[in-house]
Amino acid sequence: MVNILWGVLIIIGITYGLLSGNIGAINDEVITSAAKGLDMILEILPILVLWMGLMKIAEDSGLLKKIAEWFYPLLSKLFPSLPKQSPALGYIASNIAVNMMGLGSAATPFGLKAMKAMQEINKKKDEASEAMITFLVLNTSGVTLIPTTVISLRMLNKSSNPTEIILPSILATLIASIGGLTLDYIIRKRRRKT
């Protein structure tokens, strides 16, 4: 599906640019977009190196296993295919916990470690496993308790109550997660049958 979508974005962009006479802007984009991608990579590179280093300490010392044990009752229901001793559960728990605090960039390294741990027990290495997709749904629906960026921008724009959107945001994010997890569950069940 990403294969299709990636191509479709480019085809629509260039075709519409040609039709609307906006092709100059597209031309600039073709030339400069790779540099923008590099900028993004350079932005996350130091964060990843630092936090993956710190997390290795947490893994080697057994702290991660402890965290995984606390959350195991809940996580085992969401990820039935992951064995209890898998370090993936610890990373998943840490990723979700940090994400909930609204610290997205600090959560990414945990997420990448979780993916790596799930890949180690994945049977088909080039294919996404069920656990990976469930984890991805949890991540993209962004279980955030404190949307820090939104609140700070509201403050900057002189909102009389910058934090009033916290509860509505939590509810909306919950519904997004529940919706995603439900579809994920239905697809998994259907795939088992066939």
């Binding site: 996404a128 991805l136 749904v137 993209t140 629906s141 997004a176 529940i178 919706g179 995603g180 579809l183």
Partner: peptide, 14 residues
């Protein structure tokens, strides 16, 4: 596989 479909569906729900 079906990851994008599920992810986008979650976005739509949200």
């Amino acid at each position: 596989k079906y990851a994008l479909k599920v992810g986008l569906f979650a976005d739509l729900c949200g």
